[in-house]
Computed example of a mutant assay.
Amino acid sequence: MKYTSELKEFMNTTFPGLVIKPSLFNQWNSGIHFEFGKGLYQLKEESDELNPAYFQTVYYQAASLFNEIFSDIDEIFVVTNVYHYKDAKRRSRKLKVYSHHIKNKDIRFHLKQETLPYMFEDEEEAEAEEMCTTQFSLKCRKQDIRYHALIKAICNQDFPSLKPRLHHPNGDYPNVFFINVTKNVILFIYDDRGCEVIASDDGQIRKLYDKYAEWVEECCREEKESRMD
């Protein structure tokens, strides 16, 4: 995969061979898979109404992990993958991750864009041939991001009645990755169900694991405890 020069240099040096796409946890040895809203359900019991307690818990957990991983002085790449048809005429709504959630207009002028191959192998071959990935990347700091709103938008993406939400140019929601260049850690919140955190080595995320062990997906806990002992 190709990336913009600065992002590419960082990835090749710190995470060689890693592709910025979902399932980071399966590509890299040093990682944690967190599960949001354990014991709660998206809908109220005996009702089709959304459960506010569930979503408030999800927002709290996602924001807590973000704040634990990123400090005000850390350099961050906000990377967004948009999956769409190669034929531009078939695209619809524009991506608004950066215009809505990056505060500083001057910083937004440094947004990089690159077209990459489609990243998912489970699609029909003919369909995959017509698809590609547009990857956007922006280097900034925590205070430049409206991260509370962006995190909520990511978590809300499967629920049309909730706001804010991510816009999706081709029906597939974009994936947003937060890369901490200072600490060599990547956070990927995939939706309301949870997130992946990977690091250049286990030591970078040991404190995170200890503090939020109750949120770690059960099947990953034994493996991580044996690795981190």
Rank of each mutant, 00 (worst) to 15 (best):
N29G: 08
M228N: 12
S92H: 11
K44G: 08
K105E: 09
R141E: 13
E9V: 05
Y173I: 10
K152W: 10
S71I: 01
Y83W: 07
D202T: 05
T182Y: 01
E6W: 04
P174R: 05
E196W: 03
E130N: 04
F15C: 08
L95N: 15
F159P: 02
D122T: 11
M1V: 13
L65K: 03
A62G: 10
H168E: 13
M11I: 14
K103Q: 13
E129Y: 01
T182S: 12
V19T: 09
L65H: 04
N51Q: 05
I69W: 01
D158S: 11
C195H: 03
D158L: 07
C195T: 08
Q113N: 14
E121F: 12
H110A: 15
G31Q: 00
E217W: 03
L50F: 14
D191K: 00
Y54C: 05
D172L: 10
F55A: 10
P169R: 08
T80R: 03
D192R: 00
V78F: 01
E214A: 05
H100W: 10
G31E: 01
V79G: 02
E217H: 07
W28I: 07
F177P: 04
S200N: 04
V79Q: 03
I20N: 00
A53E: 15
T133Q: 13
V78D: 10
